[in-house]
């Protein structure tokens, strides 16, 4: 089993790669997300995490990324980002995007937003 120190070192070592990937995704933002056919009835999300994530997304994220797509900011559902990277970017902020610290969102809430974004990308 790895020691805490080793895990910490590995995490730190991964940060440049993570940031590089985020930069690449930003640059590749020219890729667009086609319009979806609007739902004819209220869509019932399959899990409580997705339901909470969708509500948090509506309040915290959709102003700059309406429906997850580009607007004031870039699209955030046209990139193959895993949940962990979405959570990292939400906590750390990036460029002009503000960081959502613990007083704004709990870890569970950040996780649920990331889960919802992954769902939007796949189901959208």
């Amino acid at each position: 089993m790895e020691s805490k120190q080793a895990v910490r070192q590995r995490t730190i070592a991964a940060i440049p790669a993570v940031v590089t990937l985020l930069c690449l995704c930003w640059v590749l933002d020219g890729c667009s997300t086609p319009s979806r056919v609007p739902a004819a009835t209220e869509v019932s999300l399959p899990t409580e995490a997705l339901r909470e994530g969708s509500i948090l997304f509506a309040g915290k994220c959709s102003g700059c990324h309406p429906g997850g797509r580009s607007g004031l900011g870039p699209s955030i559902i046209n990139k193959p980002l895993p949940s962990a990277l979405i959570r990292f970017q939400t906590r750390a902020g990036l460029g002009v995007m503000p960081a959502f610290k613990n007083h704004a969102l709990t870890d569970e809430q950040v996780k649920n937003i990331a889960t919802y974004l992954v769902y939007l990308r796949k189901e959208g």
Partner: peptide, 10 residues
Amino acid sequence: TGRVEDFVVN
């Protein structure tokens, strides 16, 4: 809930 969804869109 405050959720906003498209209804009519190009």
